[in-house]
Structures are given as C-alpha cells and as structure tokens.
C-alpha cells in the first residue's frame, strides 16, 4: 500500500499535471475570446441585409462546423506552418500555442455563430422593426437592440460551446502543444501503465471539476439575465 501511494506520488511529481490543465485553460480562454469575436461577426453577416455577406457567413459555418477539429489543427501545422512557413512566433512553443488557439477559434466560431443566431431567434421581430422605425440602420440596430437581447437568449448554447471548447482544447496536441492534458496523459500511460486507471481517473476528474462550474454558471446567468417580455 505504501509502495502504491509513493509510486502514485512520484508519478505526480514527475509529470506536471496541474501545468497541463493550466495550458488547456489558457487555450480555452484565448480560443473562446477569439471564437466569440469571429462568431459574433459571422452571426452579424448571417442576419445582415446583404445577400453576399449572408452567403459568406453561411459558407464559413458549413465548412468549419463540418470539418473535424483535428484536421483543422493538422492543416495549420502541416500546411500553414510547415509548407507555407507562416510562423506566429520565433519560439516554437508560443508558435504552436498560437496556432492551436487559431484552430480552436476558427472552429468554434462556427458554433458561436449558430448559438448567437439561435439567440437572435428568441428576439421578436418587432424589436428589430422598432429599432429600424426610430432610424437605426442595421449595425446600430444590431449592436444596441438585437445582439444585447440575443446574447442573453444565447447564454445556454454559448455555455455548451464553451464546454465543448474546453474539452476540444485537448486536440491542441495535434498542433504540437504537447504539454497539454491529453498528451501528458498519453505519455504517463505509456510509461506507467500499471497506474492506468488512476491516470484516467485523474484527468477525467480534472475535467469534471472544470466543466461543472461552467454549466452551473451558464444556467444561473441565463436565468438571471433572461429578458422579460
């Protein structure tokens, strides 16, 4: 029993599990931030009065929502970085981290867009008509009237997208971010197979601890911020 515990302790000393989770949290933070920006712009395009913008937004969503994230990550590293030699930083680790953030952002932006669009659908048409009737053109109407209400209606689906993003941040391994959780877990398993159940449990519990608060927070927020009509 003592051997078992000391073995487990040594394992945690040897591998920086907390650091790995911190990496995924950082990937999630930046990925979510950029995904929110891109996704909001896409949502604006998809509800805009200009047909070509609507088309471009829809095309983006259909392409990126239906492409596996692993393929986007691999594309970024193999095509963009290796072949086109586009570097985002001289330092490899920063470079791959940023590539991974881009991959996460462009992929989840499609889901953010659709979440916001579902939020826009909760806003009655009359709100847009009233905004137009007082002389607001499309962008101010969207910014002042539609989006503030749409975001409140989109909190639950946006929260689900954030949870998916956190879990998908492990795909950053495909962009050579080898110090994140999934890679760390794989390495630990390869060299310490005798503790495999404990290692699985460690990472699974870690993600549960991270995901549950997001779910609780979004439920609370969506109730608190709901627009009363």
């Amino acid at each position: 029993m003592n051997d078992y515990l000391s073995g487990l302790g040594a394992l945690l000393e040897q591998y920086d599990v907390l650091g790995a989770f911190w990496t995924n949290i950082q990937l999630t933070f930046w990925g979510a931030l950029f995904a929110l920006v891109i996704g909001t712009m896409l949502a604006l395009m998809r509800i805009s009065p200009i047909a070509s913008l609507r088309w471009a937004g829809a095309t983006y969503v259909n392409v990126f929502r239906n492409t596996p994230l692993t393929i986007i990550m691999t594309f970024l590293v193999l095509a963009v970085w290796t072949q086109l030699q586009v570097s985002l930083a001289a330092d490899f680790n920063s470079n791959f981290f940023r590539l991974a953030v881009i991959g996460l952002a462009v992929y989840h932006a499609a889901f953010v867009c659709e979440s916001i669009r579902s939020g826009v659908n909760t806003v009655p048409l009359g709100q847009a008509e009233a905004a137009r009737a007082i002389g607001l053109s499309f962008l101010p109407a969207a910014q002042l009237v539609i989006l503030p209400q749409a975001f409140r209606g989109a909190i639950a689906p946006l929260g689900n997208t954030l949870i998916a993003l956190l879990k998908n941040s492990t795909v950053a391994a495909a962009a050579s971010v080898s110090w994140e959780t999934a890679s760390t877990m794989k390495t630990m398993l390869e060299f310490n197979a005798d503790y495999r159940w404990e290692i699985f449990a460690l990472f699974a519990i870690g993600y549960v601890i991270l995901v549950i608060p997001i779910g609780l927070l979004t439920t609370w927020l969506s109730q608190r911020l709901a627009v009363k009509r």
Binding site: G126, Q127, A130, R132, A133, G135, S137, P148, V227, R229
Partner: peptide, 24 residues
C-alpha cells in the same frame, strides 16, 4: 435600404400594435 432610408425613418414615427418597446 441604407443610411438614407434610416434617416427618412427617423422623420416618421411609428407606433405598433404590440408596442415593441426594447425589452432589455
């Protein structure tokens, strides 16, 4: 559509059957 239309709409007040006050 466009800015000119928005400007013209500002000159025309509209009251709807379902009020349409900005709910937020």
């Amino acid at each position: 559509e466009g800015k000119a239309l928005a400007q013209l709409r500002a000159e025309v007040g509209m009251v709807f059957q379902s009020f349409n006050l900005f709910a937020h």
